[in-house]
């Protein structure tokens, strides 16, 4: 009998918690809709897929930029950035989880813009507009802890097997380097998720992982006994930006304006400290 009562109490408590959870969600929305009135960036001439909402394409699964919290909510550097931008523009946020290899195809139909650790490249610039860059990233080479592989420059990837994520700049870079003969005899294994690449490295299938430096930092910080950084390509900086439809100049202007304000407020330093500490 006693047990039953405890069980019921527990259940009731859980219900309460979940209600409170919903409640706090609601209050969040209230804040953002309240901000809608006070949005410091004018978005009246921006055409959005859904009125009053910034729809964002994002591949959730690239920590620390985008990740899933225990309860399934998207979290990460980019997620915080998106909420901050939307706050400035007085909009609500709708995150659309999309696989990275098809993410650019959905701009303008499924979402207004893509914030998903997108490196600004000339190739991508042909098909979409980019905001000002919001973070610098380098190509990083990660090896298994205690490995005797020495990488002094990207050329040293010659003769190595390299795991990386499909459709990333890392892959495009390595493909180019293979094609142009910068590296020779290099075996490239693209996988759908960056996690697969790191697991395969840990299992000893591949020699190295090639990825963006923030991602490398996260994995090395989280698993210091498994991975270590072998090389950081400081010569060639890559910059992440918000990608928008080719003709969506209005949104680009608005995003850039919002970013400028955030920069002045020191948001980026704060966010970097939060996610890359």
């Amino acid at each position: 009998m006693k047990r039953k009562i405890i069980a019921m109490l527990l259940a009731a408590a859980m219900l309460c918690v979940s209600f409170v959870g919903c409640g706090s969600d609601d209050s969040k929305k209230d804040v953002s809709s309240a901000a809608a009135v006070q949005g410091s960036v004018d978005v009246s001439n921006v055409k959005l897929i859904k009125e009053g909402t910034l729809s964002v394409g994002m591949e959730i699964g690239y920590p620390p930029f985008e990740d899933k919290a225990e309860n399934g909510d998207p979290i990460g550097y980019d997620v915080d950035l998106v909420y901050a931008l939307a706050d400035k523009m007085g909009l609500e946020v709708n995150i659309v989880d999309t696989a990275f290899d098809v993410i650019f195809a959905g701009i303008g139909t499924n979402y207004d813009c893509v914030v998903s650790a997108v490196t600004i490249t000339d190739e991508r610039r042909e098909n979409c507009l980019f905001s000002e860059p919001y973070i610098d990233s380098y190509q990083a080479v990660v090896v298994k802890k205690g490995s005797d592989i020495k990488i002094e420059s990207l050329k040293d990837l010659s003769g190595k097997s390299v795991a990386l994520q499909d459709a990333t700049t890392s892959k495009a870079l390595l493909e180019d380097m293979i094609k142009t003969g910068t590296v020779t005899d290099c075996k490239m294994g693209p996988s759908e998720k960056v996690l697969t690449a790191f697991t395969a490295l840990d299992n000893g299938e591949y020699d190295v992982v090639l990825c963006d430096s923030p991602v490398a930092d996260t994995y090395i910080t989280n698993y210091p006994d498994k991975y270590e950084l072998a090389f950081l390509d400081k010569e060639n900086v890559e910059q992440f930006g918000v990608a928008m439809a080719k003709n969506d100049v209005e949104l680009q202007t608005a995003v850039n304006e919002a970013m400028k304000q955030l920069k002045e407020e020191g948001f980026f330093e704060e966010n970097t400290a939060k996610w890359f500490a």
């Binding site: 420059s153 990207l154 050329k155 180019d176 380097m177 094609k179 142009t180 003969g181 910068t182 010569e235 060639n236």
Partner: peptide
């Protein structure tokens, strides 16, 4: 390309 650290032309 002979002197570049990353080659530019892909053949």
């Amino acid at each position: 390309d002979e002197t570049r650290s990353r080659r530019q032309v892909a053949i």
